[in-house]
Write a protein that binds this DNA or RNA. Structure first.
Lengths: 342, 342
DNA sequence: AGCGTCTCAGAAAGCCTTTTCTGTTTCTTT
DNA sequence: AAAGAAACAGAAAAGGCTTTCTGAGACGCT
């Protein structure tokens, strides 16, 4: 807890410091360090050495001012707390960090006013582009077409089809989930899922129904929409077993729901996965590996969504824009809760 | 998926655009917009109107170059995936965003090389300061004393006592947990916790032991260190019940462990909370509210840690540095898994 | 020797603001 | 009406870098 006012730290070295030490002009120093050709090898050497002696790091702020491009992008999340934003953010950060782009993080806390504020602040900082990360897959209002920099929407697509959005393929996710259960020989499959107000819930159910139809089958009962919670998983399973005690698989709208489902199945004497296979969505490690047995789940490849968004923004900054909604495939991660019927 | 190369968007308006439109010099325009006094009210009006017409936003990059301060800070996390980093990050982002500071996010992925790379990149961007967020509470190597900007360490303290670190009070967390269980009238309290390689595990255990000692009591058996998983919670509980079937409370090192503990307690016929009270650490919503009954847990107030770190960095940038490790109190969030003995 | 051609170094402009200083206008005061 | 003071506007420099253009030697050729 010591408290003190220390002398101001020495300023970082500037190019003119380097030039002076090397005994050349600023222009020559710049050219030497940037690999320009108009410098004799010996001179270049001297400059480089001087730069190293002074631990010179070119001031990106000055560079950005000059170049008109700052090498920064804004990452606008609507809700950091939610767990979907994080992997996307990681993917994007990763894709940019590898290049020489730095990422401004802004959390709008789901508030449009705050979002506007952040957009303005980011534009004031002259970011080269923006990524808008939503907290759910339902379309969200566009930031508008008049922005001076390109924007890519990730996870939550923009309502404006002129914008570019990168989203996971929820319908496809439903399909591949069912395909996996069918491959396990299951035919009496029920679907317990979350809030029907979520596009993800509806689309996954739609994909599941389509995949079953392709196999000449149908869900056991209607999809049971409810909440994204273990509690709903438990409640819905109780009702399901009362009506259809012969199900041999339950596709759950989320891993949380799946945990509730598995608890009740076990309590009611149904073995997982022997009697009933259970699958979740989201592939949320804490839940999938902690459950008994470990839970098979559909991974939305969110990190890839983030990476793809970053990449798209990159090419947009370079001048090639795309538009529309692009979907990325999901993948099934198989664990102990689904095995072939013996 | 439409693909097209659109014309470059119009550049944002500059101050000289505004000045020209208002029919004044750049200097006057600047003074008018910044509330400087050397401008006639009528002139100021004209400039402001011109700025609005052009949607002028001052270029923070140019401003930063001139001022020597950029109004940006770097947030260096070692692992975004881990759930402890996020709330800290949110707290910091929140504290800064309210001011006019923008946050660069960098994830080192737990790799020292990558961390160095990011530090260099951030310094090249002339950030005004750095916050280093760790993924666990154990001390970590300092970034060094030679950095040109102040650094604050959050969650994981720096090994160098000259640095300033903000961490949650793990010992105190153990104490208040026990205090709560004692207040519930429990006296035969066991402690099942995680990896003993983690300072957090050891310190919480120490705090728990101290609080019990203050009450003239001791833990039932030794603290049981293991892993931060439900599986370990289950295994340890089984052993515990074999040796000490009469425990009336289990303090768990994490919410995950607590879930495993509760499952086995219930399976073995112990009622929670009537017969045995259960408590966790971390207050991780998904787990605490989904469990049956909802889990009482110690919240580490991580968002506050982030906010405090941001605030400390702020004052350090302003010139007042502190050093040493500062701890922030944790708090007990009471739910259904702990009730007074009747 | 004179000319042209290279090669390399430096001067200077420019990016966008802020700020200081100078200069002009207007007003007050005697 | 003249002198002084005040109020306001603008020129210019600064901040660190890149780039273009100019200039100075060095070299080769006729």
């Amino acid at each position: 807890m010591a408290e003190a006012t220390r002398p101001a730290r020495s300023q970082p070295a500037t190019l003119s410091d380097v030039a002076r030490l090397a005994g050349v002009s600023i222009a020559t120093a710049s050219k030497a360090l940037n690999g320009r050709s108009q410098v004799r090898a010996e001179t270049r050497e001297r400059v480089i050495e001087a730069a190293e002696r002074l631990a010179f790091r070119p001031n990106q702020v000055a560079r950005g001012l000059l170049a008109g491009r700052t090498g920064t992008v804004g990452l606008l999340t609507s809700d950091l707390e939610g767990r979907f934003g994080i992997p996307i953010l990681m993917g994007a950060e990763d894709a940019f960090g590898a290049g020489e782009v730095a990422v401004f993080l802004c959390d709008a806390r789901g508030d449009a006013i705050r979002e506007q504020h952040h957009v303005r602040a980011l534009l004031g900082r002259r970011v080269d582009g923006l990524i808008v990360v939503g907290s759910r897959t339902d379309p969200r209002p566009s930031l508008g077409r008049e922005l001076p920099v390109p924007v890519v929407y990730a996870y939550a697509p923009s309502e404006d089809p002129e914008d570019l959005s990168i989203v996971p393929d929820s319908v496809g996710a439903g399909r591949i989930a069912i395909d996996h259960l069918l491959a396990c020989g299951r035919t009496r499959i029920a679907h317990i899922t979350g809030d029907p107000g979520y596009g993800a819930a509806r689309e996954r159910a739609e994909g599941a129904r389509a995949a079953l139809a392709d196999a000449g089958l149908a869900l056991v009962g209607e999809p049971r929409f409810g909440a994204w919670s273990e509690g709903w998983g438990r409640a819905a399973t109780a009702m399901l077993l009362d009506r259809h005690p012969d199900v041999d698989a339950v596709l759950c709208g989320s891993d949380q729901i799946a945990r509730g489902v598995m608890d009740v199945l076990r309590e009611r004497g149904h073995r997982v996965p022997e009697d009933v296979a259970v699958m979740g969505f989201d592939n949320w490690r804490v839940l999938t590996s902690a459950s008994r047995p470990p839970l098979t789940s559909v991974d939305m490849n969110l990190e890839q969504v983030g990476r793809a968004a970053a990449h798209a923004l990159f090419t947009a900054i370079a001048g090639t824009r795309r538009s529309g909604i692009e979907t990325l495939p999901c993948r099934v991660v198989i664990r102990g809760s689904t095995v072939p019927l013996s």
